[in-house]
Write a protein that binds this DNA or RNA. Sequence first.
DNA 1: CTGAAAGCGCTTACAG
DNA 2: CTGAAAGCGCTTACAG
Lengths: 343, 343
Amino acid sequence: MNISGRITAQDVAKLAGVSQSAVSRVFTPGASVAPATAAKVRAAAKALGYRPNSLARAMITGKSRIIGLVVAYLDNQFYPVAIEKLSHALQAKGYHVLLFMASNDPGEMDRLMDDLLAYQVDGIITASVAISNDVTRRCADAGIALVMFNRGQPESGLSSVTSANALGGRKVARFLIEAGHIRIAHISGWQGASTGRDRARGLIEGLAEAGLSPHAMVDGMFNRDTAAAAARDLMDAPEPPDAIFVGNDHMAFAVMDALRGMGLRVPRDVSVVGYDDVPMAAWGAYDLTTVRQPLMRMVDATVETLLAQIDEPLRPAQNVEIDAPLIQRGSARCVDGDDDAGV
Amino acid sequence: MNISGRITAQDVAKLAGVSQSAVSRVFTPGASVAPATAAKVRAAAKALGYRPNSLARAMITGKSRIIGLVVAYLDNQFYPVAIEKLSHALQAKGYHVLLFMASNDPGEMDRLMDDLLAYQVDGIITASVAISNDVTRRCADAGIALVMFNRGQPESGLSSVTSANALGGRKVARFLIEAGHIRIAHISGWQGASTGRDRARGLIEGLAEAGLSPHAMVDGMFNRDTAAAAARDLMDAPEPPDAIFVGNDHMAFAVMDALRGMGLRVPRDVSVVGYDDVPMAAWGAYDLTTVRQPLMRMVDATVETLLAQIDEPLRPAQNVEIDAPLIQRGSARCVDGDDDAGV
DNA sequence: CTGAAAGCGCTTACAG
DNA sequence: CTGAAAGCGCTTACAG
């Protein structure tokens, strides 16, 4: 044992009466060790409470088995749940998660890159964070895999995993039209994000197929207050909408609160549809009709894409889109007799 | 530059025409370097995009500047928000967060210890996770600081940061009594956790001061379904309570949903009080009267305690309790003219 | 102030 | 199968 109290392979070697290399081999899967040697080493290791130093191992192998996970705000329930699942999936594969909180400030990610690189992460997962060209280049230079989760950046040549957002928006359009709505407004997700844009585009396309156009379009910025204010403005107008598609559940809850605060009833006075299907959407207080982002499938695809890219650095970027079903609940009127099936 | 494409201090030294030691000194705060040398090195480093390898630095210094953050479930909104604030606070101090998801399985933390130790974390923060004596000992042996967040374990000799849970429970008792409630039930937090026990004890003591005892006590296990079922049972009984104190907000939301699902009105038919004051408690759909855990103060105390313990390993454990104010909202009846002040 | 050298705890060719 | 040795990229006494 050295001064710091940490037990090293050297200590174990001494106790087991073997060389330090032998100790290392016992803890290196696939290395050749005689069973008897391995047994002695394991016994000594257990007695001493030895575990190989991952940092030292990382230096030699050039693989830290650390994944940098960069997330913005955690108040939208979609992200905590995603983090939980991503962490579990990564832990199951023997990776560890170095967590970074970023703001939505576009320069934030650039600043975090220094730390990410310094800790020699093998890969990076970003959740709803913008990636500059500089970041893209630095990752490429350092040979670091990167996958964007729940956000795409087509021009960037980066891998991404999202739900089929445009198709999701189109499903909402069809569903609302079929239920007889004609003045369909959209409080969109932030139009600076692909998710916000694609859902809005899908809605517009879906309405167009039926010869309609949106009753109103407002950018809700993925922000509760902005969305609530937009909802109030919409309903205060001379001709209010009969349905509001909100760019994500997080804003939809604020919209429903605002509507009820005005004395309006959902869906009698106005239907509300969200996007994400966070756990809260199923709670009694909201009972929100929404488009479900299949979280487990998105997480699995993200991890799979990332690990494939780590194994094979030259592999081309992949943009995975996962189908998102509409989940009917009580916040939107629907055609009779069709009140619990997916679309 | 070595084979892996990573730029090292050696590369920078070559370009700057100085020794590798000189490069190291430029990036080591407090080391003595001539301004001219520093300038040359910085220029070369910038040109090459060099950053010291944190892993190598950690090996030498024995300080990884990594904090292990162990959390259980993220569906209770209190934790994501706590993680966000803890991460920010730690990042501001130059530390990094290695995130581990644990289940509430008591053995889970023991298993995670191997990884925590292997990555040479300088300290550990656990959020609502039980710590075995074995874990305590291994941390002590390895000289790793540990602070429990939102959970105490008095016998363990471990540091902890919580709100003043017993006092919080007592505040709820006084508040409900003052508003005229007499049949006060408690759907408690899990009684295996100090937070669950202390809040329950506080309520009982507060009721006792007024000569009352709880109308009913049920362990809600910090679980939505358990709490909702308990609420239904309580209200279905021949003599239902006129107020329910729920062990945390997460369960309180489920209780309110269950109550409304029975056709009951809150607070007209029954008052509901929670604990935590997560952001959602203020949302229109719940408007929950609750006890606020002052998150920023808890986070600051946690980081401060942890860093103090890292700096001074022999420092005795601290158990910080932070006063938690009652926040009156609409889910509980209160005495007239006193409907927006803290208690 | 500066460079050469030792060493942090490992993995991995290289001989044997 | 095994040990001695080199080396991953740094920091830090030690001389100068």
